[in-house]
Nucleic acid binder design. Structure first.
Lengths: 250, 250
DNA sequence: GAGTGGTCTAGACCACTTA
DNA sequence: AAGTGGTCTAGACCACTCT
């Protein structure tokens, strides 16, 4: 007897996860809806508890569901903020200015906390770009609707900003860029390097991230018109809260 | 007796995961090294197998380790490709042109496969941008060093490219943009929207992604100088294989 | 108090890799 | 053949949420 090559059945936990994913992506289960819990899955599929948990953990690690202790597992909500990088100023919207992805374009108010300002010795990569290891560092965390969405760590060459408002909590009107301008080092060019990865544990805490949420890491360098690097800003964003947009010419 | 508030000990599996993560991040365990396996963790910590697995699964879902059946769990390797978005042409490197993150800047050769070209009815968001649902679609997959790193799906307005080489596998010298130029629709402006998320199952297969790897999704729209959208390109990148770079003016 | 998810034990059989 | 990770069962105790 010739056996035709049968595609092997996926394991039970995966078939269950596939069904639930389908229900979420098709819209049968909507934002915030409760998924069948461990007990429900055990009963309806006749499986052990560990197997039910495994099925749910697939969706949780995919970022599609969020577990809430003592309550249940829920479909994850999603409403990203749009962050503009290079924005072409000469013409505001090309074509109809339509975006591919939905996002919340209203400028939702954000709050800043966890402000820390220190004089430090920078790590090697930052020191290399800024031309020396002595830096002032401004750390802060941004929240929207009371939920943290971004951590930001800015580095400035110490010799350049020493004594200025940049080394103090309140930088005054216009913020650090206005102060850099007054010091004769107005940023004119930017480079942004972007990566995505799973968060480190301390980022998970600071951004209150559920499992299955990647972060977007942006390393932004500001240069003066003369080409001097005057700021290195390392940002870590909750990937579920952001859409980045860059507009540029060919 | 007054109890001072004791910080609760993390669970065993988490303490083990923390230790292993520390070993990885500190460099004690390097790229490709083998981690202690399930049996080793059971013996040295005196725990059940499921607990050892849970500890390892933390690192796997963080993208720090990769399991290989029948062999072991290994520290994940990492050497991203640098992809340039808007590149400032007038001056090649600002400052010393130093980058924050390591990356492979040599232009490694890539291969293209899974090429599919079809005439389709586009989904709503794409149709809205392109001004109609009738499109030609070019799907392809890029690999570097034999490993898939990117999926790309390009949409072109059917009425604009009908009959041109864009509707055929071989687009000729200069590729689709050269052909668009000949048709009088040379792209002059681009918009890129960027998101990061965990991959969908079919993306996991196409990109051969281990657990714990996010993807970067880029939706790129090309516009002519007149502002007509002539291409919507939706790319999905293995986040572990890429650093995106954007250069722009203030 | 009942139900939920979080952690953990002690087994079992399997497919796969390595030597 | 021995060792590895992949799947699965059948229990247990806990902290937490909901009503």
């Amino acid at each position: 007897m010739q056996q035709s090559p049968v595609p092997p059945e996926p394991p039970i936990y995966r078939r269950i996860a596939d069904g639930l994913r389908q229900a979420i992506l098709s819209g049968d289960l909507r934002d915030g809806d409760r998924l069948p819990g461990e007990n429900a899955l055990m009963a309806t599929h006749g499986i052990a508890r560990a197997t039910a948990r495994q099925a749910l953990s697939v969706l949780i690690n995919e970022g599609l569901a969020v577990p809430k202790r003592g309550s249940g597992v829920y479909v994850r909500q999603f409403r990203p903020i749009r962050r503009h990088g290079s924005r072409r100023l000469s013409r505001d919207g090309w074509g109809r200015g339509e975006a591919i992805w939905d996002s919340d374009t209203r400028g939702r108010p954000y709050t800043v906390d966890e402000v820390e300002i220190d004089r430090e010795t920078a790590e090697e990569a930052v020191a290399r770009v800024l031309g020396g290891p002595e830096v002032w560092v401004r750390r802060r965390r941004y929240s929207v609707d009371g939920r943290p969405v971004q951590i930001s760590v800015s580095h400035f060459p110490a010799g350049l900003v020493e004594g200025s408002a940049i080394t103090r909590p309140d930088t005054g009107a216009g913020g650090v860029y206005a102060r850099l301008g007054e010091l004769g080092h107005l940023p004119a060019h930017f480079t942004e390097e972007i990566r995505a990865r799973m968060p480190h544990p301390h980022e998970t805490v600071l951004l209150d991230l559920p499992a299955g949420t990647p972060v977007i890491a942006i390393a932004r360098v500001a240069y003066t018109a003369e080409g001097t690097a005057v700021e290195v800003n390392e940002m870590v964003l909750d990937a579920a809260s952001y859409v980045l947009q860059y507009d540029f010419d060919a």
